[in-house]
Amino acid sequence: MRIKSWIAGLATGLALSVATTAQAEWAPKGPLTLEIGFGAGGSTDTIGRIVAKVMKEQTGWNVIAENKPGGGGIAMFTGIANRPADGQTIGLGVNMPILVNLVTRPGEMAFNLDSFDYLGTAGRAQLAMIARADAPFDDVAGLVEYAKANNAPIAFDAKPQELAMRKVMQAAGVEFQFLSTKGGAENVQLILGGQAIAGFEAGEHLPFLEAGQLKMIASMNNERHNYAPDTPTLVEQGYPIYVDPVFFFATAKGTPEDARAALTKALADALASEEVATVVLNSLKSPILNMGPDGTEAMLRDGLENVGQLFK
């Protein structure tokens, strides 16, 4: 029964596709893979999965979300850059790890900003420096003071966080220890468990702030966070360094014009939906911000310059 109707569907589908190829709108041949540059359970993962879902509903394409963690998105984007530009695969990553790697180790990267066609952005992440609520300090100056007398292990899950803290370390003349982790959740775990004195998290720490288990030491962005207007940024606390993580979508350079247009539109429609907005607001605590293809590219190129000055 099922097979029969399926074959019938196939026949109609074939007939239709023959009839409409002439003026056909571009559609992916087979499933469209949305590769997420981080593991399951984090904020990038949530955005990717909800966008894939809404996109599938709106376009009727078979959109599959897949986790491709490694190097803060470097692994995934290396793959995208080396893929045939057929519009079958798009990547979702965060700009900061990409930019910092391009600045600090340009020779070793298998791609640069020219390797991609950009499709849009989902929003900004608000990265916070956090500590356990009973930590003997409330700001970066206090942390520096603490580090003068004690070992001060700091949990980080992406290179920019470590480099920023190394800048603080040099400027203040103290020493931190760096605990490399697999993600924000592990940072929180090490902080709550008392193995790390401070660490970083972009969104998932909010319930812990409300519960009074964690406190926020600084905003790592160049603006204060909308949910914590009283916590100053790292820049305001005297260390001229910040990160500006943006979630962005890209595909391989040289994707045909019609495919690129179709993908850009499908993505923009999904991002404009109520459902995506709610989920992103829940996990990021910041609104959807789609800069569009040109805006995304400009954001990355400006960012590269900026990061070059900050992190070189």
């Binding site: 909010l206 319930p207 812990f208």
Partner: peptide, 15 residues
């Protein structure tokens, strides 16, 4: 966890 979050449930100490 990721399924929880998509269903609008944020894991954490208040769960």
């Amino acid at each position: 966890v990721s399924a929880f979050m998509i269903h609008g449930v944020q894991p954490g100490p208040f769960l």
